[in-house]
Structures are given as C-alpha cells and as structure tokens.
Amino acid sequence: MTLTANLPAVFKGRSQILHPTEIVVPAGQVLGVIGPNGAGKSTLLRSLAGIDRLHADWNGVPLPRDQIGYMPQGFQMNARLSVLEAVLLGKREALGWRMAPGDLEAASNVLLDLGLSHLEDRSMDRLSGGQQQMVLVAQRLLRAPRLLVLDEPTSALDIHHQLVILRHLKTYTQERPATTIMALHDLTLAGRFCDSLLVLKDGKALAFGPPGDVMSRPCIAECWNVAVELMQAKDGCPVIVPHEHGFGRKGA
C-alpha cells in the first residue's frame, strides 16, 4: 500500500504559498516535513488532510475522510471536559446518546498507551499546554486513521514526552499500518524518528529523501540560513549542533 497525494498550488491573495507538490509515502512510514517559518508546511499539511478538498489516495483509491486524522497547530482549550471525554470526541461521528462501552475502553487504552492515564478525569481547562497537546494526539489516535497528519505534535513537550509521543506514533504507523506525515522543527528529532524528510522552502520542495541524505550542511545553510555542525550519532542518525553566531551568513 502506498499513499499518493498530488497537491495543487495554493495562493493567498496574489502570493503563491505552495507550489504543486507530489507526495508518495509507503504504508508504515513516517514522513517529516521540515522548513523555516512561513515555508508553507501548515498549508501543505492542511491540503494533505483534505480539509477543503481531498487529494490523497491509497493505491489509487481515494481515502475516506474518516480515515484521516489531522491535528492542526495551535491550541489553547478552556473547555470543561474531562480528558477522557476530550479523547472520546475523536469518535465524534460514531458517538450516540448512550456511550458504547467499547468506545470508552478504547479511549482509556489510548491514554494508557501514551502514559496519560493519571490525567483521565482531569478537566481540560486545568491542563498545561503540553498536556493538552498530548490529549489531542490521543484524540487522533482513537480514530485509528490510515493517514495521520500532524502539525508540530511535539512543539509544547519536554524531551521525555517528545520521545514518548514520537515513539508511540512510529509504532502505531508500523503496526496499523498507516502513513504518518508531520511537521517538525527539531531537526535532530526529525532525523531520529522519520523514515524520510521533505524540506520545504517558499512553498517549494527543496529536497526529499532519507534523513541521512537530505540533511547536509549546504542544504541546512540554504534552507534556514544558518551555519551548524552536523555530526553523527553512533547509529548513524544525524545530529545538528548550532553555532552560537551561526545565523545570517549564508553557507558560513
């Protein structure tokens, strides 16, 4: 099974924020979308998630909407809902007046898998931003989608929870099997957890491939306009160490 999406160009007013892009990802793989602020990452993800129109298909068969789990960026909830209820909303279309015990158990198990069981009966409006973000990931996972589209799912998390969430997403992707596409800002994390990376700048795909191939000093310098030290962990995973004054000098 392979996910194919032919994303059309997107304009905002007169400026083009996304050029036509083709995305092909086999099932069971995680694709990371990286690029500077304003590169069009969120636009690409929105288009991929088919919020306005569907563009993605599995082996040529259009993906039903309920098979897509899209998590937008930015959240700050003041809802007086318990965490369990918030996760249950992931099954919104299927929820009836009476709660099916199966749904309740499924929601509970997703929270357990993410190590969030202790928050189950907490009110959403009393959670920290990072906790809310994890609840939203849990909400998406409850839908058991074949395509997961996540816009910076770990932006508010500490290193421990970043690892928990990304590890879990990777396992889910392989076992379902699903295709996961997410925007990330932390390049080292992206290199560690993604099977392939798409580098986006000014709405155009700059590079695409396995992290080891994509992440090179020239590519990073061109895309973000920074000078970094590129090292390798023992297992070959690229590690990015920024220079203190490494910004603003192209290719320095």
Binding site: I51, G69, Q76, L81, L89, L136
Partner: peptide, 20 residues
C-alpha cells in the same frame, strides 16, 4: 447536536479536523 456542540468546545480547528 449535543456531541457536535461539545466538539466545538475543542476549538474550531480541532472540531473541523474531526469532520465537523
């Protein structure tokens, strides 16, 4: 619309992404 109104409390972006 009880569940839909509850979903709306998760914010427009999230509610939309839940197919609402």
């Amino acid at each position: 619309d009880a569940w839909n109104l509850t979903a709306l409390r998760m914010g427009d972006g999230n509610a939309t992404s839940l197919g609402l």
